[in-house]
Amino acid sequence: MSTLTYPEVGTTRLGPLPDGYHHLHHRAVVGRGRADFEAAGTAVTEWRMHRASGARVNASAARADTGTTVEVSIGLGPLRLSAPCEIVWTAYEKDRTGFAYGTLPGHPERGEESFVVELADDGRVWFTVMAFSRPASWYTRLAGPLVPVVQHWYARRLGASLRRIVPAVRRAGHAGY
């Protein structure tokens, strides 16, 4: 296992989020019914959601599993920002699927972020991003209050990307685990 850059490992699973960090919580409906839930879970845990949002993903496994390392990067050329992470927990449950990754050395932030899909009793499929973070590099410290704005924008983008690709994943028959 790699060296995570923060001590509160696994906190996004059940909360509460730790003090001393910026907190992010975004929740959006991305579908309806069991088939959409399974498709959304597949899209989240097989990196499809991140890729559909425009991020590059280089993972040590095709599917999220505890201990998997993943580098998510955005931007172009010399302006590409890379974020090395490690999966710290996963959930492959009847009505809840997702994972959280924690930051590794070289990540511009310190903290943890989870991506979870849940099937509610009313049939709605919810996608939730929960995170806690603080700057780990000079440029995120310099960006100051802009960083949480960008993080929230990216969480909304992930939700919109997931909502858009769920029907395609479902039709392709890749919704099973």
Score class of each variant (00 low, 15 high):
T140Q: 04
S133F: 15
A131F: 00
M130D: 12
F127D: 00
Y139D: 06
V150G: 14
R157W: 14
W138C: 00
S133A: 15
R134P: 02
A155S: 12
T128E: 12
E118S: 02
A120C: 12
H152I: 05
L146G: 12
V117I: 01
T140E: 06
L142F: 07
R141D: 04
R141I: 00
A136L: 01
L146P: 08
R157M: 14
A155F: 05
V149D: 02
V125F: 09
H152G: 14
W138D: 05
S137G: 09
L142C: 10
P135F: 12
W126A: 03
S137D: 08
L119H: 01
V129C: 09
V125R: 07
E118N: 06
Y154K: 11
W153K: 04
V116L: 13
V149E: 03
T140H: 10
R124Q: 15
V149N: 07
S133N: 04
V117D: 07
G144E: 00
G123A: 09
L142M: 10
V129N: 05
V125N: 11
F127I: 01
R156C: 03
Y154A: 08
Y139I: 09
D121Q: 13
W138I: 08
W126Q: 13
F132G: 04
W153C: 10
V150P: 07
A136D: 11
R157P: 01
R157A: 14
L119V: 02
L142K: 11
H152E: 12
M130V: 05
P145F: 08
R156K: 11
V150D: 03
A143L: 14
M130A: 14
W138P: 01
